[in-house]
Each structure stands twice: as C-alpha cells, then as structure tokens.
Computed example of a mutant assay.
Amino acid sequence: MAHEVKNPLNAMTIHLELLKQKLGRPDAMKHVDVITHEIYRLDEVVVGFLKFARPDELKLRPVNLPDLIADVATSVRVEAERSSVSMRVECSAGVHAINADPGMLRQAVLNLALNACQAMPNGGSLRIACRTSRHLVEVDVEDTGVGIPPDDLSRIFDLYFTTKEKGSGIGLSMVYRIVQLHGGEVEVQSTPGRGTRFRLIFPQA
C-alpha cells in the first residue's frame, strides 16, 4: 500500500521539476513551490511508515553510550545554539555498554534531543545523560521547554500523532519502535510550562 502511494509521488516530483523549468512567471512558481513542499512532506510520511512497519534489520554490537551521546551532542549543538539552548552531557566513563544497533540508537537519541530544542523556542536547558542502574542502562533526554499536556501524554508515541504545526508525527513513534526492538522501555515525565524528561531503559550487554 505504501509503495503504491510512493511511486506516484516520485513521478509527480519529477514532473514538477520539469514544469518549474518551463514556467517563468514568479506567481506561478510560488504555487509550484507549495505543491513541491507538500509532496516532500507526504513522501516523508510514507517513508516513515515504511521504516516503522518494516524497520531495517538490527546490526547488534556492544555500544559505548558516552561516545554515542557525545556524537549526538555534536550534531545537536548548532540547533541548540540557534534556539539559545544551553546543553550539558552527563555520562560517566563507567557506564556499561549495551548490545545495540549504533545507527538506530543514535537516531533515537538524536530525535529526542532535536525535539527538546524545538520545545524551547525562547531558550532553555537541555540535559543528555546516561548511567548504569543495577542491571540496566538508562539514557535521559531532559528539557526545560513547554512541556506536554497531560491529555496528550498517552498518545505521543502513536504514529502520525503530532501537536506541531508542521510535524509529521513520525519521530517519537520511531524512537519508541527502536527502543522496543532493543528490548528496552521508554518512560516520559512532563509538566506543562516546566519541561519534559524522556528516559530510555536498556538491558546491559
């Protein structure tokens, strides 16, 4: 079903590019750009559905979480600075490794960190931490942003559910799916106006 939607989208994108080359009027180009943008948004939804329904095969190996989180922090830093968000990383060197697909795990933590920055449009604080707790390893992504309304908390991991004007509703669903595939759990605590903390919990390697 998703492929049957994606193939026409690809065809429309190609023909829109050809049409843009033939149109010279600025007012016409404006409408073409809007259509192009909406096609890309729809394509993102379809791709997200495909990844959610048929995720890539896990390539498990021992993953050093402090190194992975340091890499995520580097990727997030530009977005954090743009939003006047101060970021700190709290990972001790003694955190146990976990068996994980490093690419998938990085994507999950990165999604949460970027979401956190977007939840603080007027600045704030982002904390990314990892620790060993008994036989488990925990990763926290915590912000001082707008928070999540209580009525929405039970729905935030539903595919396509979003409260953002231009959100696809895929990011948190993928986070939840990735953690599930690793035999882990996701906990979330949020207070409107004060912030949100996501905690990813994994078994030790």
Rank of each mutant, 00 (worst) to 15 (best):
R155E: 01
L42T: 13
T132P: 12
V95W: 05
M104Y: 05
D152C: 09
K164P: 04
A2M: 15
T132N: 07
P66H: 09
L110V: 05
M12L: 09
Q180K: 11
A2D: 15
R41L: 08
K30D: 12
N99I: 02
S168N: 14
C117K: 00
D158I: 01
T163I: 07
I98L: 09
A73D: 03
L16S: 13
G124D: 03
D151C: 10
L58K: 12
I35Q: 10
V139I: 14
R61H: 08
L112M: 08
A129Y: 02
G48T: 04
H15V: 09
P102R: 00
E90A: 14
G167I: 04
H31S: 15
S168W: 04
N115H: 12
F161C: 03
I178N: 07
L60H: 07
S168R: 14
V109D: 07
A205R: 10
L23W: 10
D56E: 12
F52T: 05
E44Y: 06
Y40W: 10
R82W: 14
S75G: 00
H135L: 04
E142K: 07
I35M: 15
P62T: 01
L126A: 03
M1F: 08
N99A: 14
T196H: 12
M1R: 10
P26D: 06
Q204R: 13
P62Q: 00
L114N: 06
I14N: 15
V34D: 04
L110I: 00
L126H: 06
R54P: 02
F52I: 08
P55M: 08
R134P: 06
G183E: 12
A100D: 03
F49K: 07
G123W: 09
F52Y: 15
Q180I: 08
L50R: 06
T36D: 14
C130T: 08
E81Y: 02
A11K: 15
I39T: 10
S168L: 15
E38L: 04
L23K: 13
M104E: 09
V188F: 11
E165W: 01
K166N: 11
S133C: 09
D151K: 13
E142M: 08
E165I: 05
N111D: 11
L112Q: 01
C130N: 01
V76L: 06
K51E: 10
I178Y: 13
V141G: 03
R41G: 06
R127D: 02
P150A: 00
G24R: 11
Q204K: 13
E81I: 02
L136N: 08
G145W: 05
R106D: 08
D143S: 10
T36Q: 12
V72N: 07
C91G: 00
V76Q: 01
A93N: 14
P62E: 00
S92T: 10
T196Q: 09
Q204W: 04
A11D: 14
L50I: 11
V141P: 06
D67C: 03
M87C: 12
H3I: 00
F161Q: 03
I201A: 01
V76T: 06
P102N: 04
S84M: 11
R134K: 12
S154N: 07
N99F: 04
G167T: 01
F202N: 02
A73G: 03
F157H: 09
I170V: 06
V32D: 12
N7Q: 08
G145Y: 04
S92P: 00
T74H: 03
A116D: 07
